[in-house]
Nucleic acid binder design. Structure first.
Lengths: 231, 231
DNA sequence: TGTTATGCCTGACAAATGTCAGCAAAGTGT
DNA sequence: ACACTTTGCTGACATTTGTCAGGCATAACA
């Protein structure tokens, strides 16, 4: 298992590409069979995710991950390049390609539904599909490179500015009103409400919570429209 | 410096006291002079806080903390009992005794102000006085004992149930409507909005953000009153 | 059946970490 | 000036950690 070639951890190489839309996964060539490698990587990532959420990133050891995934301590480096590489792969899976729909998309695709219904659906999807990604992201910020943090923030900002446009449409506010941005931020934040606080209200029915939060969001937006500056 | 007696880290001793309202700080008797010890402890905690927020709890080493606080690596154990003890002291300072007012208190003490103004004031206070505590709490959850986590949750639940009562008063909803609980949760969560997302909208004016969020909260509450079940 | 390619694992290393024993230094009161 | 108390610190310990070199087993192939 000789020729392991890693892509360097922090590659400040690229000539100013404007926005990356994923974190860079190191190329690891320890194992020839690509599909096997992918399968192992998945084992590793699954185990690591559990542990990271349970014990935190820094106090989860490679040995823990190996034990839980059944991969040998030495072999693991045939599949991933280092501990941070695992984290990056997880964030790519769970944060960048979570499969959760964006609210603007939903509004576009289902104009027949009420705003409240669309928002409620959005929240439920987000809470189920991005729960772990959200938790992971909020908790591991300190362990990311500046570069990686910037990439994650860029993703958020992109979502938010699209959302702000939607809110502009809904409220008929002018483009330069900064409050649309604040509310867009707030909506995205409330989409993180479920994951981030699930340690608290485990006794409340999830659908009820989603519906109530959706109603709150709708009220927020309508309120914004009501107090718009005369135009 | 012999007779160091530590209170054990996880003392499951007490005979079922119902709710603790702080984390247990270990008693450390390495240094006789109490006020000096307190001063040193403060140095240590200040340094540790900076580092915990910057690098995360687990990857901050005792050596880091010593270097930054100017306390010697050996001496530090004359003032604190271990790394987790520092964290607990910090959370006590910043989470349990932050000095930020609670919204119900504000409403009671200043009925002459509008709800919106009270909420806005509450948010600003919370964001300035509990910023670090919130960040610390959300990020270090995995490093706390089950016991400690329970204590923190209890504090939150206490705040929330008081807040839920206030909301009941404002909306005239019956006592058993679970939505007041959800909204109370939400309000507390939005109070964490500023701290948790300050990595994002550093370009927006803080007062504007607070006012917009306050308006959103008021809208949420009024909306709740509007769609109350007929009684 | 013998050879080879490929994935797997034992064992280890250097570095870092939490923790402290025991001594040096600095006050403090006489 | 001296004895004693209280604080600070050098140096080190046992462990844990990330990481890997190099050999081993096995299955494919000749």
């Amino acid at each position: 298992m000789k020729p392991i070639q890693h892509t360097p951890d922090s590659s400040g190489l690229e000539p100013a590409r404007p926005v990356k839309n994923e974190l860079l996964e190191a190329r690891v060539a320890g194992v020839r069979n690509a599909s096997l490698a992918e399968k192992r990587r998945e084992q590793i990532c699954d185990a690591a995710l559990e542990l990271f959420l349970q014990k935190g990133f820094a106090s989860t050891t490679i040995r823990d991950i190996c034990a839980r995934s059944g991969v040998n301590q030495a072999s693991i480096y045939d599949y991933i390049s280092n501990k941070n590489d695992i984290l990056r792969r997880l964030l790519n899976r769970l944060w960048f390609r979570s499969g959760a729909p964006s609210l603007p998309d939903l509004l576009e695709q289902h104009p027949e539904n009420s705003l409240q219904d669309n928002v409620a659906f959005y929240l439920k999807e987000f809470w189920s599909k991005r729960r772990k990604g959200t938790l992971l992201a909020y908790r591991t910020v300190p362990h990311l490179t500046k570069e990686d943090r910037k990439t994650m923030r860029a993703r958020d900002e992109q979502l938010i500015s699209r959302l702000a446009e939607s809110i502009e449409d809904l409220t008929q506010l002018p483009e330069n009103d900064p409050r649309t941005l604040v509310v867009a931020n707030l909506v995205l934040f409330m989409a993180s409400f479920g994951p981030l606080r699930d340690w608290l209200h485990q006794d409340l029915d999830n659908d009820l919570v989603a519906d109530t939060v959706a109603a709150a969001i709708v009220a927020m937006i309508e309120n914004l429209a009501r107090y718009s500056p005369e135009q």
